[in-house]
Simulated scan of single mutants.
Amino acid sequence: MKAKLILEDGTIFKGKAFGYLEESVGEVVFNTSMAGYGEILTDPSYYGQIVTMTYPLIGNYGISLEDVQSKKVCAKGFIVREKSDTPNNFRNEMSLDVYLKQNKIIGLEGIDTRALTKMITKKGTMKGIITLDSNATFENTKTKLENFSNADAVLAVSRKEKECFQGNREKVAIIDYGVKNYIINDFVKRDCDVTVYPATATAEEILNDNPDLIFLSNGPGDPAEIDNSIIENVKNMIGKKPMVGIGLGHQIIAKAFGGKTGKLKFGHRGGNHPVKDLEMNKIFITAQNHGYYVSEVPECMNVTQINLNDNTVEGMKHKELPIYSVQYHPDSCSVSKDNMHIYDKFLELVDSNK
């Protein structure tokens, strides 16, 4: 079925719809990864976004449900140059098309994804709508685009009740702002006793369980729009337990200490971003998925890592307290395993605190 992508600047791309045939509005972004589309679709950090894959053929190894990062597809739409209708892999359980149908997410194929990506890098990320309406124009979809908001993204993706994963080592309290399954698993693999809390959990509730480490997870949306009570809860836990964070959690730590965040022009989304660790004097290849960054580092924090593409902050460490954070996603689903030592650095804070 014919479909269109209409951007907020009036640009229209024409292609074919697949998956669930219902129009969708979101922020149009791109990801440069060659593989991992199953993980990308289910990563809660993509909530509210229409994801464009720059690799030209997507779906060739199908979908394996072992790879999903949450209970459902979180992206608002999926754009590819060409989808594979004949996936071939021993782990394949269903095609990409069937998977999107089951999760009620629309896909768009057959457009010039290179042109779209170049446009985003030049103009920045934009709101867009994938529509099946042959009569749709920028003028008659403008109101839908203007009304789209992702302000409540964290509350939309966070679990509603706490969940426990028993282990014999450190007690880790994960605050779920949109945590990926693989991040939980990377603590579980280290035999940590993990409890995952909703984003709305109070500082008192978390501290009463006496964790050894508080972990602030990744998540979607603009940190400037996050509910102030979430920031206050973090402030109330500072200094009482070692604290670490990734992604949005890294940004929340900065905000809790008076730092500021800003929006990147087109974001960092892909599996091949070079980051330099200033403490180790080494360069690592990282998996990233964020549209915002720490623009002003709090005075009490030292910058530990930087992005070599644009020199933005990728890591911070408190000058006195056991608090450490990184912007990228160090998890075992990434093509690069360069960054798995980050979890060990997180857990070392527990020992140093004792």
Rank of each mutant, 00 (worst) to 15 (best):
L96Y: 15
N88M: 08
T117E: 00
L132V: 14
I111D: 13
I129A: 05
Y99W: 11
E109L: 09
K104G: 05
N92E: 01
V98L: 14
I129Q: 09
G124Y: 04
K122T: 06
G124T: 01
G124K: 04
L108H: 14
L100Y: 00
I129N: 10
Y99G: 01
K118V: 04
I130H: 11
D112F: 01
N89M: 09
M94V: 04
E109M: 12
T121K: 15
G128D: 00
T125Y: 14
L108Y: 15
K123D: 02
T121S: 13
S95A: 06
G107M: 00
N103P: 13
V98D: 08
N88S: 11
M94W: 13
T113P: 13
Y99H: 05
K127R: 14
E93D: 03
L100A: 02
V98Q: 07
M94L: 07
E93K: 12
I130M: 04
M126D: 04
E109G: 13
L100N: 05
N88V: 09
N88W: 15
T113N: 05
K122M: 08
I111F: 03
T121V: 03
M94I: 09
N103H: 15
M126F: 10
M126R: 14
E93A: 01
S95W: 03
T117G: 07
I129S: 06
I106H: 10
K118I: 03
G128T: 03
F90P: 15
M119D: 11
L100K: 01
D112T: 13
N103R: 08
N88R: 07
K123T: 12
A115K: 11
K127A: 10
T121L: 02
Q102D: 07
L96K: 04
Q102S: 13
K122A: 14
